[in-house]
């Protein structure tokens, strides 16, 4: 048993390394993932230790990366594909949606597609266009894919290994803004909970904040401020976006009567819309106010100097809490 304190970036690296040690069929593919160790260094040192056959610096073509990963998965490999930035996933969109997602059902289960597509997502890093997006709803809308988002180093370490072990294709979203923002103790002998469960990360009883990926921290910060003002907010980390695990959310909302979903993605037709619709179906008589959504505006992700006005922050979350209570 070893307990190590590490950042999310290091935790992802350690998780990948362990998955590669445990299963020789796990291969890493992507742009600059080899010698450079990835532009975020998530794959740092892996090519040196596992060789060029298992950690591939691919040509710069996202459809090509995912499409060739399909062929490798057909032959029994478990590719872990890195998409360098969220906004660069679209050249691979057809392969992901039409091929990766459909192989298992098309083949009536004869050809599983165990593949993890890692996407650093979300904004707040002062980047140029296409480097700050949140495309999760597009993949959660696609049957055949599973979509998860980690929010902290411990989850990053375990969830990545669980996603790699899954026989279905998993879109694995990493909140790049938090790669290095926090550190946590990881006990590699611990037994992680199931991948497909959401989790209460801060208990409360006045209202329920629902986030995932980068907004979990925002919600926790908002709850801390609200607590000072005498409001006890429960925070839930969805973790799995497809399938959704709304059991803990429903249990919470039945107690609090108020729910606010927070994500960086555009509000219109975002994941919050689905959560709101389902809570209306399952918790209608418990709701004291409509389920509110806090998210990115329905604009293209803006230039970096104005991104703070776009991203949901503590104030916007607390403003929504106020609106919920004022309803």
């Amino acid at each position: 048993m070893t307990t190590t304190t590490m950042s999310m970036a290091k935790a992802l690296n350690a998780g990948l390394r362990r998955a590669m040690e445990e299963d020789p069929k796990v291969v890493v593919m992507g742009e600059d993932v080899g010698r450079l160790g990835g532009v975020f260094r998530i794959t740092d040192g892996l090519q040196k230790d596992f060789g060029e056959d298992r950690v591939m610096d691919t040509p710069l073509a996202e459809s090509g990366i995912v499409g060739t990963a399909v062929g490798m998965a057909m032959r029994g490999y478990r590719p872990v594909v890195e998409i360098q930035f969220d906004g660069f996933v679209y050249p691979a969109y057809d392969q992901i949606v039409c091929q990766v997602a459909k192989f298992h059902s098309r083949s009536q289960g004869r050809v599983p597609m165990p593949m993890v597509i890692r996407i650093p997502f979300g904004g707040g890093i002062g980047a140029v266009e296409h480097h700050s997006e949140s495309p999760e709803a597009q993949f959660a809308h696609t049957p055949g894919l599973k979509v998860v988002a980690c929010s902290n180093p411990v989850d990053a370490y375990w969830m990545l290994q669980q996603a790699i072990a899954c026989d279905d294709p998993v879109i694995f979203l990493e909140p790049k803004r938090h790669y290095h923002s926090t550190r946590a103790e990881i006990d590699d002998a611990a037994s992680p909970g199931p991948l497909w469960e959401s989790r209460v990360v801060r208990p409360g009883d006045a209202a329920t904040l629902i986030g995932y990926g980068p907004t979990v921290g925002t919600c926790v910060d908002a709850a801390a401020v609200a607590a000072e003002e005498g409001r006890s907010l429960e925070v839930i980390d969805l973790r799995t976006l497809s399938p959704l695990d709304l059991g803990p959310v429903e249990e919470s909302v039945r107690r609090t009567g108020r729910a606010i979903v927070v994500h960086e993605a555009h509000v219109n037709l975002g994941l919050g819309a689905e959560v709101a619709a389902r809570l209306t179906e399952t918790c209608f008589y418990s709701l004291e106010a409509p389920v509110l959504r806090v998210g990115g505006w329905d604009t293209p992700y803006p230039p970096a100097r104005v991104e703070e006005a776009y991203l949901p922050d503590l104030d916007r979350v607390l403003d929504a809490v106020d609106r919920s209570f004022a309803f």
Binding site: V27, D53, S63, G64, G67, T68, A69, V70, G71, M72, A73, M74, R75, G76, Y77, D94, Q95, C98, Q99, R106, S107, V111
Partner: peptide
């Protein structure tokens, strides 16, 4: 299986060939 999206399977073929190498 037959692939309907034009050309998509050609990438799968290249990937399958990469798996044969491994």
């Amino acid at each position: 299986l037959y692939t309907i999206v034009i050309g998509a399977q050609v990438l799968h073929a290249a990937g399958y060939a990469m798996a044969l190498q491994r």
